[in-house]
């Protein structure tokens, strides 16, 4: 990767809010991301941290109202997507940016064969005839390693296993050779041996297609397997950004450290699991100061008052914590 080249996707100070009966929910509240060309960025965090809403905002899929994009910019290939109208977004979606979801069965239409659904995408965006689109669809099924694609193309989604359905979804997403694939928890609903197959496939396809991958997951194991770059989200913010090796070797934010600590380990015997006490804050009532301070074992008085900004603690490693670097301050 060349450090000077502009990233394919850059998200700056993005704020996506939702109006609800309980008040204004600040689901995404100042998110900064950068995804270089040809790389995989993992967005990791727990339920309600805003990772999926960030992805939906990039795709222009946040319903407004109740949603509103309160601030920020989404630069894709240098153009701000937040300034695009509906037609421009429709032309972009599926073509330059594609997305796959956790549960392929809810994204595939059960009334049409997978071939119908892949060729529809191709016919909609490309000036080709049905025969050519079908050939392309079969080719896509082959590239996602679906056996006997000439027969499978005429099958309905319910005839496929969970893993095969996710492959079909990926084939559809990649049919137009997008620059960016956004995958929201693509393996969470799958069994572990099938998950391993799909992660391997995504890795291979990212290289084959030369695309960039934004992968959203709650699973640090998945992050370690596929990420080049990682952004950790908590309560609507990115609290840490680093390359994958640095993030795991020298995590800088207490939340990242706590998440890693609370996963049972295969290599170490522990009697009691370390725990991040408490729960994620309600997005309508974020704590003052650092949003993690009520759960943070390292918090000091300043953390209750000051909302920390992402700050570099090493080249390419940014942490939003007043006490960073922790190892100097607490060990």
């Amino acid at each position: 990767m060349s450090e000077t080249a502009a990233p394919l996707l850059e998200v700056r100070n993005l704020k996506t809010y939702f109006r609800s009966e309980e008040g204004l929910s600040r689901a995404v509240d100042g998110v900064d991301l950068a995804l270089p060309r040809g790389r995989t960025l993992c967005l990791v965090g727990e339920s309600g941290c805003g990772k999926s809403v960030t992805a939906l905002t990039i795709m222009g899929l946040v319903p407004q109202p109740p949603g509103q994009i309160a601030a920020g910019a989404i630069l894709f290939e240098g153009r701000n997507l937040l300034g695009f109208d509906r037609d421009q977004m429709n032309a972009l979606r599926g073509d330059r940016i594609a997305m796959i979801f956790q549960e392929p069965m809810t994204s595939l239409n059960p009334a049409f064969t997978i071939g119908d659904q892949i060729t529809e995408v191709i016919l909609r965006h490309r000036k080709v005839g049905p025969a050519e689109a079908r050939t392309r669809a079969i080719e896509m099924l082959r590239r996602v390693r679906i056996p006997a694609p000439e027969q499978r193309i005429d099958e309905y989604p319910h005839k496929l296993s969970g893993g095969m359905r996710q492959r079909a979804m990926i084939a559809m997403a990649l049919a137009l050779d997008p620059q960016l694939l956004i995958a929201d928890e693509p393996t969470t609903a799958l069994d572990v041996t099938i998950q391993a197959q799909i992660l391997e496939l995504l890795r291979e396809l990212r290289a084959e297609f030369g695309m960039s991958l934004l992968l959203i997951t709650h699973d640090l194991g998945v992050v370690a397997e596929v990420a080049d770059e990682v952004a950790v989200m908590y309560a609507g913010r990115v609290v840490e950004r680093a390359d994958v090796a640095t993030l795991f070797r020298r995590p800088g934010h207490p939340y990242t450290i706590g998440l890693m600590a609370s996963i049972p380990k295969l290599t170490v015997d522990q009697d009691e699991l370390p725990v991040v006490e408490g729960t994620v804050p309600n997005p309508t009532m974020q704590p003052e100061g650092c949003r993690f301070h009520p759960r943070c074992p390292f918090a000091i008085d300043a953390c209750r008052a000051t909302d920390p900004a992402l700050t570099a603690i090493a080249p390419g490693h940014e942490v939003a914590c007043l006490r960073a670097p922790l190892e100097q301050h607490v060990l």
Partner: peptide, 23 residues
């Protein structure tokens, strides 16, 4: 660092927090 999230770490928290200035 992960030890601060264990129950023993929580007991030791008060002493650990006495040191170290904020950034």
């Amino acid at each position: 660092l992960q030890g601060f999230f264990s129950s023993r770490g929580r007991d030791d928290r008060a002493t650990a927090l006495a040191s170290g200035p904020a950034r």
